[in-house]
Amino acid sequence: MANKIRVATTSLAGCFGCHMSFLDLDERLLALAEVAEFDRSPITDIEHCGPCDIGLIEGGVCNSENVHVLREFRKNCKILVAVGACAINGGLPALRNPISLEDCLLEAYRDGIGVENAQIPSDPELPLLLDKVHPIHEVVKIDYFLPGCPPSADVFWAFLTALLEGRDPTLPYELVHYD
């Protein structure tokens, strides 16, 4: 079918739990595949996002690569959606925000229990960490938000079907959860 809706997805500072929840659409994925196709996504292994209709962003931004990817999505996606608690408020990764980055690295790679051959990773290939984890609306304009940890498959379904049918994608009370 020509002119399918193009959807890109990514997980920044997230756990892929939102992507797993998206896959909980189960047989509804087949109906979705009738009208939509994936661009850059962990599902396709396409490395860079091309022009898309919808971008789904899981996770907040915790390093420089997250910022680059997020900007690439914003540049290419007509509609950009923050998916899940981490994208919306930093979520679990933001629990490191009250702790200095140096202390985080020392605890994880030098002083923590069970650390062997202690060294702070410094390969130039590794993206640099930000001093704090930030929600994505602090970096780029976000068009819609799907709260939840993760948002249930029903949230994805309600949102995407509304959008595809040209309706305002509002979420009823039962679908709004922060946990």
Partner: peptide, 9 residues
């Protein structure tokens, strides 16, 4: 559905 403002943390 979102927190709108920048976070203080």
């Amino acid at each position: 559905l979102d927190n709108h403002f920048p976070h203080f943390y």
